[in-house]
Amino acid sequence: MTGTSLITARERALAVLGGEPDDATLRRYLHGIAGVDAVGLEQRAAGLGTRSIKTTSKQWALDRIIQLIDLTTLEGADTPGKVRSLVAKALVPDPADGTTPRVAAVCVYGDMVPYAVDALGAAHGDPDDGLVSVAAVATAFPSGRASLEIKLADTAEAVAAGADEIDMVIDRGAFLAGRYGLVFDQIAAVKEACRRADGTSASLKVILETGELVTYDNVRRASWLSILAGGDFIKTSTGKVPSAATLPVTLLMLEVVRDWHLATGQRIGVKPAGGIRTSKDAIKYLVTVAETVGEEWLVPHLFRFGASSLLNDVLLQRQKLATSHYSGPDYVTID
């Protein structure tokens, strides 16, 4: 898959903003967007969470969740062996049930990309075609505290190694200090660094780290900013700070994506990451996507779960549906 053209993204930003994307212009724009009432947002999310998904819908939902997972390992202790194991799990999530779909992608640190690509072999490719992508976190993940030069090199190296998707972090410090122009420029530059020699481009997921932005108004503004700067996806979290993906935050980001689509016709993806561990929770996200932006968003190039332990819970639920009795952890594989 390819990201949007760099030039059109920048031009569109200029057109939307009515000026250069500097601090002042971005501030006028982002602070002009309607505010968020936290209580109402959380109530709406809670309401979506009470949907009851049964039988055929549940079957479909469980398979779709698997197909939307970025199966992730992001540890300092990651090794080639660990990554190979992760890839094996991504390709054959449930060895006992051949009907189990593959996950969308494996998500690793940049230096692990070659091992992932190697392990995937012929199965490496676009998840919309039933293949498995390689996503790499980049830009001095998770803190983002490095020079732009290093962030770009980090990105370019991962792309060169075969990463299909780059999960970058924004500079939360710059955002909170009101340096919106700097955040914009960095995202745009990373987007540039995603470009391959053949002119295609890795898809760019922009991690907002919502747990550090704290307020919903900040999340909404950072979402708009990231989309304006050319992000193909907006992603909640690194998974490395205590408050990761929540349903209200994801709902809010989906609302931005919906409004961007209404305004420009362009579809942006959303990736909640961190903290989604159960099928029950994941189904709430599917419901939220379906009822906010429509179920056409429930495809790998528009929605992902950043998760590791979620997959096995989904598999347990799948086994329960297939056999009508409850399964146990010894009946799913650790990766």
């Binding site: 009432d37 936290a38 209580v39 109402g40 704290v214 307020t215």
Partner: peptide, 10 residues
């Protein structure tokens, strides 16, 4: 007259 208003830090 009873007035309700939402309350949140976020």
């Amino acid at each position: 007259k009873t007035v309700w208003h939402t309350k949140s830090m976020r």
